[in-house]
Structure formats: C-alpha cells, structure tokens
C-alpha cells in the first residue's frame, strides 16, 4: 500500500491548517502528530497547498 498523505515531521509545526481545509475530514491532529484516515483521503492536494511550512506531500497514485 502506498500512502496518499505524507507529512515531514521535521517541518510540521502541528498547526492543524491541513485539518481545517481537508474537504473529506480525513485528517486529525493529536498533540504534535497529524493522522490521515487513508480511507477518507481523496488525494486532492488541498492540504499540501495550505500547509504554511510545505511539510505535506500527496501521492495521487496512492491507494
């Protein structure tokens, strides 16, 4: 399985910006970690665009 959502935790400032723009409510922030429900993620890339520190990579081919 290739993950659709990947976050570089060395960049992430756990601001939850990605969580608030996700159109399918696939993301959750708990303290310092963002979790993705891969079943809900549609790899649309909105979170990647919204991240203020460019920490997210979306793999459109993931499943």
């Amino acid at each position: 399985m290739v993950e659709k959502f990947k976050v570089d935790i060395s960049k992430c400032i756990y601001c939850a910006g990605c969580v608030s723009v996700c159109p399918t409510a696939a993301l959750t922030l708990n303290e310092t970690r963002v979790y993705c429900d891969e079943g809900k993620c549609v790899a649309c890339g909105v979170c990647e665009k919204a991240c203020p520190v460019n920490a997210i990579r979306i793999n459109k081919g993931g499943k």
Binding site: A16, G17, V19, S20, V21, C22, P23, A25, T28, L29, V46, K49, A50, C51, P52, V53
Partner: peptide, 26 residues
Amino acid sequence: EGMEAKLAREAGFDVKAALYDVDTCF
C-alpha cells in the same frame, strides 16, 4: 474547536474552510 472544528463538522455544520477564504500564516 477553532479552525479544525471536527465535531462541528460531524454535527453537519458547513465549517470546512475553502482555500480562498483562509490566510496561511507563519
């Protein structure tokens, strides 16, 4: 819940922020 508003969303409120309607800040 602030911008994340997870449970408000679950309750059916239209709280998802569109990119055009947010500023991203550092």
